[in-house]
Design a protein around this nucleic acid. Sequence first.
DNA 1: CCGCGACGCGAGTATTTGCTCACGTTCAGC
DNA 2: GCTGAACGTGAGCAAATACTCGCGTCGCGG
Lengths: 207, 207
Amino acid sequence: MAGKRLVTPRKEPSQRRSRELVDIILKATARVLLKDGYEGCTTNRVAEAAGVSIGSVYQYFPNKESLVVRVMERHQEKLRAVLSEHLLTLQNATLQQAVKTLVRAMLDVHRVEPKLHRVLMEQVPRIGALKALHAQHAAYEPLVVAWIESHRDQLDVPDAKMATWLLIAAVDGVLQRVFLDRPSSLDEEQLATELERLIVSYLRGVT
Amino acid sequence: MAGKRLVTPRKEPSQRRSRELVDIILKATARVLLKDGYEGCTTNRVAEAAGVSIGSVYQYFPNKESLVVRVMERHQEKLRAVLSEHLLTLQNATLQQAVKTLVRAMLDVHRVEPKLHRVLMEQVPRIGALKALHAQHAAYEPLVVAWIESHRDQLDVPDAKMATWLLIAAVDGVLQRVFLDRPSSLDEEQLATELERLIVSYLRGVT
DNA sequence: CCGCGACGCGAGTATTTGCTCACGTTCAGC
DNA sequence: GCTGAACGTGAGCAAATACTCGCGTCGCGG
């Protein structure tokens, strides 16, 4: 009988006023997350920050978790938009060019509302939405695999799937760290160059 | 006047019985973390799991956070022990050998109580202890930097510090991911080999 | 203009949480 | 064995939290 926790809205807003309300609530949630972190992000505080009654919040969100999940989803939609835009340009590019645009793309992705991104990555305990994030990453994998396989002659990669997984994990790990510690001494341009070197070296292989 | 939150014990256990008590409490905390996650890890539940009065918990721990912090610290002491042991062997090793032992070392590190490790990494919101972890990583950086610089003739690295930072971030990111998703299809031996390839390629450079 | 459903409100509730404190128990030194 | 300090207990408190519900308001089809 222990039903799962709902994260879907309990009522779909139909009139314009209510759709705006939902937007206001979500923006307030993001603000509270930034200001007070996840632990301090209570439903009452969100309602207050939104200038909205707590009852109104529960009209469209079944519980606290669903609020944060929706904020994450919205954020990731933006990220995906940015990434997709870049990915279009790498159809017929050289190895160097392709890697370059990919690295810049991922750096760009992390520049979308970096503070919110940081809080979401850093503080939000792993709620369901994180699986969605990994699933999204996984969605891009076949693209990269295909690209690698179509350039096999220039590369030295025994297992395209493995290489893809490894590269995505590595690059993502690096970016994660850059935007968590933000070592100010770190020049972003240099970082990009080195990341490119890392990827190209690995793909080209050595004897 | 808003004092910082204490994480140091409010009273040092002096007799043997009480020292054992502290140990029991910390082990119970770890168990509860595993079973109920961070959110579900309440002081009352920890006391119950330890078969100990809630009052006894507060005799040695000033608040809930300090419990988790101590668990993290203990865990990391173990990790550091494992890593240090491995690092001793790479004084005068070839590039290939050194990288190999390093990769194995880091894989080994993640095998110490992996379930606890996962919960700590995944669920524990970033409390003070995480900074300690990064500081610890940073502590090993100079070692690697020195090693790189002493092997400069065999390598192609413009900036040793940058390269070190990047490699540690990348490898750590990969391992993080391995032990979070645990894609069972992933052969650990193959992963180690590929990680070595990644590192060696980057350090050797390509034209 | 009317009526009804969607909308918005916020005081209030039930529960949970971290934590205290007054009191009983064990231990070490004499 | 006696004594005082260290230890251990758990009922219970103050505060916070997620969430409800009855009521007033708005807006759209007719």
